[in-house]
Design a binder for these strands. Structure first.
Length: 345
DNA sequence: AACTAAGACAACCGCCAACAG
DNA sequence: GCTGTTGGCGGTTGTCTTAGT
């Protein structure tokens, strides 16, 4: 069988579109509406294939496309939908008015994906990455505080299924039993607990996106399974426990250090308005970035071919850090507490 | 100032499903 | 039912810009 490529004919131009080409395409579609894309370039006087014209129109020239940086709400929506739908960019784009699947895909690959990786999360499963996760640090924290030993809350079940890791965990646990104080102390002295901290995110309830998807005809079974999978595989520890509870054995200074790291901002019920204790050291950091605001987001004219690269389209004042810190509040999954470590050991 | 690397985004490629003849 | 066409989708590449040295 095999289908002939739509752009294999000689004389058809490829590469970036010029303003003149954009104008021709827009003028033609405004007059005739997009119909048969194969005939459009010929009728519009373009040396392009129909597919190229369609992509240019749908991804860039369409008047209802929203340009400019993604808002926090949009980013949150993307991440949550991605946790449910996976790489179904068109499905995700359908729930973000004015955004194209291509734009969302690019944004995911260039921003969110890297951010997740830096946070130690697998961008595919949204679960902690075991290849960089310091298991011993997790165990050390567990050992220093028995109530902390809900390993299911620290690791996804898939990681617990790894026999090598289980052996390691068993070995460390037995070591601890034999020589509790020095072992725990050593782990703490080596700042391993901080490593653990850097791999935690706070679980939260799935938001109304789930209901929306249900109303729009998505199978409740599929969505439920997806959410359950995300809950089980997702990162599982409750950061607020570390930051606020007196039950754990983390020194106060450690808590402060943790909270004050911009990358680990307090998780707020409203991700756009972080809850920042007035007296915390983080407050000063936050204040130092006060020049950030949503109003600083400047949209880009639709027809402009390159201005997205313009600095004006980016949030000033450490936006990347802001995003990264706020991002921690986006992975919102309720984790069952019932997983018993003993079943795996 | 020149060069290089990394980042960001637009565009392309190939596959697939739906549809029409 | 078969075949070709079309549009849609996700993955990947190409190109331009920016940052760093």
């Amino acid at each position: 069988m095999g289908r002939t490529p739509c752009c294999d004919k000689d004389g058809l131009k490829k590469g970036p579109w010029t303003p003149e080409e954009d104008l021709k395409l827009v003028n033609y579609i405004q007059l005739h509406r997009p119909g048969n894309w194969r005939t459009i370039p010929k009728n519009a006087g373009l040396q392009r294939c129909g597919k190229s014209c369609r992509l240019r129109w749908t991804n860039y020239l369409r008047p209802d496309i929203k340009r400019g940086r993604f808002s926090f709400e949009e980013e949150e929506t993307i991440i949550q939908l991605h946790s449910i739908l996976g790489n179904k960019w068109s499905a995700i784009a359908a729930r973000l008015p004015g955004r194209t699947d291509n734009e969302i895909k690019n944004y995911w690959n260039t921003h969110i994906r890297k951010r997740l990786l830096r946070m130690g999360l697998d961008p595919v499963t949204h679960a902690p990455r075991l290849d960089i996760l310091d298991l011993s640090s997790i165990l050390s924290s567990s050992l220093s505080n028995p109530s902390f030993l809900n390993v299911s809350n620290l690791l996804g079940t898939q990681t617990l299924m790894n026999p090598d890791l289980l052996k390691l965990a068993t070995a460390i646990l037995s070591l601890k039993q034999e020589n509790q104080v020095p072992f725990t102390k050593t782990l703490q002295e080596n700042n391993l607990f901080n490593n653990l901290m850097q791999n935690q995110v706070q679980p939260v309830q799935p938001n109304n996106q789930y209901q929306t998807l249900l109303q729009e005809g998505f199978s409740s079974e599929i969505l439920t399974n997806q959410l359950m999978q995300a809950n089980v595989e997702g990162c599982c520890s409750n950061v607020s426990t570390f930051g606020n509870s007196q039950e754990n054995s983390i020194p106060t200074s450690l808590n402060e250090d943790f909270i004050c790291q911009p990358n680990y901002m307090y998780c707020s019920s409203n991700p756009t308005v972080p809850d920042i204790p007035e007296n915390s050291n983080f407050q000063s950091l936050y204040n130092s970035n006060q020049n950030f605001s949503f109003e600083s987001v400047v949209s880009t004219p639709i027809s402009s071919p390159t201005p997205l690269n313009s600095p004006s389209t980016f949030i000033k004042g450490g936006a990347e850090d802001e995003n990264e810190s706020y991002c921690n509040s986006l992975f919102n999954f309720e984790i069952p507490e019932s997983l018993d470590m003993s079943e795996f050991m």
